[in-house]
């Protein structure tokens, strides 16, 4: 859908300058359509995402989903050790990054009956879904492989029902029988630990301090 739109944009590109004999010292093409703004600078880049997804679908890499160490070993008989290590990595990641719920009820309403376990650690007690599988990529690469936990839901109303989902809510296409994917690199990036912001305003105090000085300067910014 966005293909035709993009073609249109390219055709609209203003290309005024003719080609000189000499290489030019300035940017050759700037897409004016894309540089045009509404009347205000928007604080957030809303609405860019769809174009963006279409634009960079080419640097994907292969990834497989396994539901157990055995499952992995069967697929890769020569990589038993890696299968186990990747499983361990995924388990640890799950502990750190999986969605957390205050009550078993909340967790089960998202993931289904008996799909959640209770966990108690430094941050308190809560419930998280069981890891239902793990996604690996470049398992046979000597330098670094990727492994992350995946979840699925058995709850009727959940958007995750019978689908693979990552800790940060990315839902993969197809249902859980689908085991081979081509994913963008960031899909495989380690997920952030679930965050609770404790404080804000720890940056910017120098600005307040220095701004209170004088008014001779017209420049309000901290660029130079």
């Amino acid at each position: 859908m966005s293909t035709s739109k993009q073609t249109e944009v390219v055709e609209n590109t203003l290309s005024i300058s003719e080609s000189n004999q000499q290489p030019r010292k300035r940017s050759a093409n700037i897409d004016l359509t894309r540089m045009r703004k509404a009347f205000n600078v928007k604080p957030l880049a809303i609405g860019v995402a769809s174009v963006f997804i279409a634009a960079c679908s080419d640097n994907r890499q292969d990834a497989q989903v396994y539901t157990s160490i055995e499952d992995c070993k069967q697929d890769l008989p020569n990589a038993a050790a890696q299968c186990e290590a990747a499983y361990q990595t995924a388990l640890e990641e799950a502990e750190r990054t999986s969605p957390r719920y205050r009550s078993e009820y909340d967790c089960e309403s998202e993931f289904g009956p008996n799909q959640c376990r209770s966990v108690t650690n430094d941050s308190g007690s809560f419930f998280m879904p069981f890891m239902a599988g793990y996604m690996v990529s470049q398992l046979l690469s000597p330098s670094r492989y990727y492994s992350q936990p995946l979840y699925t839901s058995y709850a009727y109303n959940s958007p995750y029902r019978s689908r693979w989902v990552t800790a940060d809510g990315h839902v993969f296409g197809g249902d859980i029988r689908n085991r081979n994917f081509r994913v963008k690199p960031d899909t495989l990036k380690p997920k952030p630990t679930v965050n609770k912001t404790m404080s804000r305003g720890g940056f910017g105090s120098s600005v307040r301090a220095k701004s209170s000085w004088g008014s001779s300067s017209r420049k309000g910014g901290w660029g130079g």
Partner: peptide, 13 residues
């Protein structure tokens, strides 16, 4: 994504 310097937060993590 944009965030003002003064709005940056520090999480428990």
């Amino acid at each position: 994504d944009f965030v003002f310097i003064e709005d940056i937060g520090l999480a428990d993590t």
